[in-house]
Design a protein around this nucleic acid. Structure first.
Length: 128
DNA sequence: CTCCTGACTCCGA
DNA sequence: CTCGGAGCCAGGA
């Protein structure tokens, strides 16, 4: 378990209900902008063990990337259940639903204790 | 060790 | 806007 993996897990767990993050967004937030594919891998191997809200992670186009229709429709079902709206093309409005934890804001909030609403329980532990 | 693969992205046409 | 190709990185064969 690398620090990166742990960060990814924490970040994903911090995505609020009704919001989504892109693979690349999670990777960026975890400090590795180019590690989108690793995020995917972590999702595969850790989602069950760490009870991750895997359905809130979608691709940069705002679409569900699952290949198996079965899981894909399940993911869309979950999101829809949280109030996320899909257009006729099966994509969500990222501008509206994407959750963006600031790059360094996690640390700041830890210091100031002042952070945006709904983002109080996603603090990263001291790593690195 | 090398090769292949993927729930990805970016960038140019 | 869509489409295609190259880049990306870590696991598994």
């Amino acid at each position: 378990m690398t620090p990166f993996t742990r960060k990814v897990i924490l970040i994903i767990q911090s995505i609020p209900e009704g919001s989504v993050m892109t693979y690349g967004g999670v990777a960026r937030a975890a400090g590795s902008p180019r590690a989108a594919r690793q995020v995917v891998r972590i999702l595969h191997s850790m989602s069950r063990k760490y009870r991750l809200p895997w359905h809130r992670v979608i691709n940069a186009k705002g679409m569900i990337s699952l290949t198996e229709d079965e899981s894909a429709s399940l993911q869309q079902l979950y999101l829809a259940g949280e109030g996320v709206v899909f257009d006729e093309r099966g994509m969500v409005d990222l501008e509206r639903y994407q959750y963006v934890p600031g790059p360094e804001l996690e640390l700041e909030s830890e210091l100031t204790g002042d952070f945006g609403a709904g983002a109080e329980d996603h603090l990263l532990p001291p790593l690195e």
